[in-house]
Design a protein around this nucleic acid. Structure first.
Lengths: 153, 153
DNA sequence: ACTGAAAACAGGCCTGA
DNA sequence: TCAGGCCTGTTTTCAGT
């Protein structure tokens, strides 16, 4: 867990909003010239703090704007079951997020699909591929109010 | 909702994984020369399908690896309350996702913070800023198993 | 010796034909 | 598709602290 000064944090904030920002602009924003700014970016990349730069798409325009959350309880807590479960779920491209949880339910995943029918297909594939699911409950998003990939740095 | 051919979809898939991929490589991957490939990218941007390019950071290395989900019920369903609630929650930088939900709970948000104590601070601020919350329940991620921003195109 | 500035170099982008 | 100009990233060298 690295130690960052306020210049690093400003750079990260800017890049989290727009990864295409040219080096000269970034340097300007933190009152540096390009070379020292570039060295900071390289260091942040090498340290693995800057993981990757990705394109974000519009789910509405792509017709994949239906979001569901699936919560799962299991009766099987063996390592083998866990490995199989994790690799099965992870391979679904519709599964955007997946967590082992504390509390009532053992696992939760966020699923992004076209519509309720597409969700049901995915759901049926899931329960067919994994055994020992004692309880599976789904909730649905009616309206997305915020979605950001920018961590609070 | 745009109509995309398989070349467009391949380009989107590649850019969702690595937005820094040079034009020449993208063109190569879809068996085009740079010019027609570049025109496709421009069109995808203009159509708003390619929304933005962002940097993704490592929450563990930044010490913000604690994920909580907060579910909320309200007794107040007026437009004014909704506006105030949404703007309040949206302004929290720790809130990464926020949905109006169908079912048992009216709203759900995903919160990303340093630790349980940071979560509790955020929680207290939230319930202090918003009235008429009849039920607020939090669940915690023990282990992230998958996180992707890449939509299944 | 370290940090930052400036200038030269290289490479990718974008637009004509 | 190709070729050219332009802009941006990258490297190196130099100066100041």
């Amino acid at each position: 867990m690295a130690v960052l000064d306020s210049v690093d944090r400003t750079l990260l904030r800017l890049l989290q909003n727009d990864a295409t920002m040219p080096l000269a602009e970034l340097a300007d924003a933190v009152n540096l010239t390009t070379t020292p700014c570039w060295k900071r970016l390289k260091r942040l990349e090498e340290d693995g703090i800057l993981r990757q730069r990705v394109a974000l798409l519009d789910p509405v325009k792509l017709g994949i704007a239906f979001t569901a959350f699936v919560q799962v309880k299991t009766s099987n807590h063996s390592q083998d079951w866990f490995n199989h479960f994790v690799s099965t779920v992870t391979e679904f491209p519709e599964v955007m997020e997946f967590y082992r949880m504390a509390g009532e339910y053992d696992y939760m995943m966020k699923v992004q699909v076209a519509d309720m029918q597409a969700f049901d297909n995915m759901y049926k594939k899931l329960v067919a591929s994994v055994s020992d699911l004692t309880n599976v409950t789904s909730t649905f998003a009616m309206e997305p109010l915020k979605y950001t990939t920018a961590l609070p740095v």
